[in-house]
Design a protein around this nucleic acid. Sequence first.
DNA 1: TTCATAGGAGTGAATATTCATTCCGTTCTT
DNA 2: AAGAACGGAATGAATATTCACTCCTATGAA
Lengths: 199, 199
Amino acid sequence: MSINKLAGSKPITNKREDILKAALSLFAERGYDATTVPTIADKAQVGAGTIYRYFENKEVLVNSLFQECVRLLSATLLTNMPNNDRTMREQFHHIFVQMSQFANHHDKALAFIDSHSSARYLDESSVTMFQDFLDILRDFIERGKQQQIICPMPSDVLIAIVYGALIKLFKVIKTGVVEETPDLLLAAEECCWNAVRVH
Amino acid sequence: MSINKLAGSKPITNKREDILKAALSLFAERGYDATTVPTIADKAQVGAGTIYRYFENKEVLVNSLFQECVRLLSATLLTNMPNNDRTMREQFHHIFVQMSQFANHHDKALAFIDSHSSARYLDESSVTMFQDFLDILRDFIERGKQQQIICPMPSDVLIAIVYGALIKLFKVIKTGVVEETPDLLLAAEECCWNAVRVH
DNA sequence: TTCATAGGAGTGAATATTCATTCCGTTCTT
DNA sequence: AAGAACGGAATGAATATTCACTCCTATGAA
């Protein structure tokens, strides 16, 4: 057993976590192709060889990371998701709030997901997991369309509009160009809602 | 005088153009870091060394290409831009139509611009040119706010929402997931307008 | 008109560098 | 002491960039 573990329990220092964290930071900032494995090792304060103890290769690493990030994003979205008996507007509020929570607590993860979600090296499992995330938005949109509260347009188009707006919105907030206040968030939420609701 | 030129006139074959075209295609699909110079040379049907006759190095190439693409995008947006005496809605229609024109005729350029607009290797000139493009949107937004037709929110936030929505919208259309019909475009335009107008 | 030549575009093999991955000696845990 | 975890230099495969060379055309001398 490694120095790394309490008897029969979890590791004290988790190199795997360190590696994933370092990789997330670097991938989010420079992108997969511009990030070298030795750089990840340095940032994680780990030997280069250690990375290969936990991940078969760089592609496996990026896929593991992507899946973990998307899983967390989906879980965040689904946390305390209101029942269907709540209004669509209330459900939208929940989605917006949870997304902005995620953007605040996991800004790098959101940037990483968005910039890598159609990368050529993503495996089937990663692609599926990202689709599952989009399906959460799709379900919402489609229920809204049935109730004639959301515009009768192809769901993919509506998803693109809302998701695209949210991504760039949180990106501009993250860069600090505008100050993130509760009022601003509420107003931005209203904008996004107005984009998809029927008028 | 080279074989390449008509007397005192323009080149017959334009290798520089060929290189830029090949680079655009590859950068848009795989990204800058995943694209090798020899691959660009192959695609442009040009010797690898020829690229360095026209561009000092790979970074100069990507900046030249970026600036050319952004210049074209800005020019497209400004083409036949309605006067200020037209309604905000009419001006927005123009912006939307021109953007969708650009997305259709230069889909690779739009993808390239979006995925590289905050890349670390962009030089000052490229960054400025992209800012100039965003300023076209900003001007519109700010006039709309003055007239109290567009939401009183930070311009950067409104730009992010509209620009983000447009980018993902055209991306989903380009992938062929949804069919691009005039009706769909009109409906999507209305969605984007609803996002920023005051209610 | 014909031929030799200069000069510049174009080429792609060669070079120097960088990177992902491996391998083995060291350190830590039990 | 045995074995697992670790580190980081070594390796081999790519990659960006260079450079010596080819080829073409315009020029002008004869």
